[in-house]
Design a protein around this nucleic acid. Sequence first.
DNA 1: CTCGATGATTACAGTCTCAGATAGTTTCTA
DNA 2: TAGAAACTATCTGAGACTGTAATCATCGAG
Lengths: 183, 183
Amino acid sequence: MRDPAPGAAKGEPGSRPGGPADDQAAVIPGDHLSFLLVQLGLHGARRFGERLAPLGLEQRNAGMLLRLAANEGQSQQALAEMIGVNATRMVFLVDELEKLGLVERRRNPADRRSYALYLTGQGRVTVDQVRAVTAEHEAELGAGLTEAQRAQLVSLLRLMADEQGLHPRGMPGSSPGAGARPG
Amino acid sequence: MRDPAPGAAKGEPGSRPGGPADDQAAVIPGDHLSFLLVQLGLHGARRFGERLAPLGLEQRNAGMLLRLAANEGQSQQALAEMIGVNATRMVFLVDELEKLGLVERRRNPADRRSYALYLTGQGRVTVDQVRAVTAEHEAELGAGLTEAQRAQLVSLLRLMADEQGLHPRGMPGSSPGAGARPG
DNA sequence: CTCGATGATTACAGTCTCAGATAGTTTCTA
DNA sequence: TAGAAACTATCTGAGACTGTAATCATCGAG
């Protein structure tokens, strides 16, 4: 995540990124909503990734974990659909978490073709840590704002998201997306 | 750009990316600043990319064009440094624009090792189109807001960006970075 | 003029992320 | 029981980007 373009993006889970150099000439006025959103979105994503690093997690892992915590016992496919990644990708994502000892696949007795996904004990501990990190991250982002400003900002962003037809997806890292790379 | 994580990212700016499915369970409250920013940032990036498609441009091309328009006559290296991509990558990016007939490399008489980059006539036309697309995009993003709300949102976002130590970089697509991908 | 540094180009190797095709196992339905 | 369908796993390939190194032309300094 460097700096995205008004459409920069793709990334997601994209993810991983370095830091670009600072600019001199502003091609697009700094008061463009699009630019500010992308810039802050990427900044937030990068910072969140940095905060997760000490836990040994990537953003995608954290997103998956939180998703799973809220939907234990689901099949990989169901979770994949919810998150928006294809089944092929989901295999890999679950593999990662399983190797970390955070989740386990259990055969679903009702349908032995599929696995039911569950958090392990360590997985629950990690989920709590991720939530704590998320709270810290949230606080950092709003650090320069008064509570009233923060509330108003959230309100406006939600209004905007609604207008754009966006729905809460559960969390970041849940999307596969590509990043937009400017380039 | 799907849905990013609080650190979703990476991505992207980029990548990639398709559209995820809608959610059911919100793992992270929809009122999290981090989530809203990433979500809206990626959404904006994706939409911007869609708007550029009819012009035959990728986001990276548009970002480069706008940068170049504001800094004609610079060497590739100078532009690369400004944008934050390495020289190797820059060669490719300029090649793309040159093949599209939008920019041209001219030998710098003062230093014949380097090229001075300039927009072609078609390049200028395209820059205007990109700016128009950007304006439309901007309007779309703010469609659900009153002018006062939009102004306030911009104000709050700028305040936030300042607090986070972010500086205007000129534009999206300007950064190389990785995208943030959620997982 | 010679040498060292620089700018641009090219070729490679390597990383990441993701999609598509395919196959194996199991379940469901007729 | 046979066939269709679902779920998962594996393999292959694409796209975007980084980094290194080698090459060539040119510039600046000594």
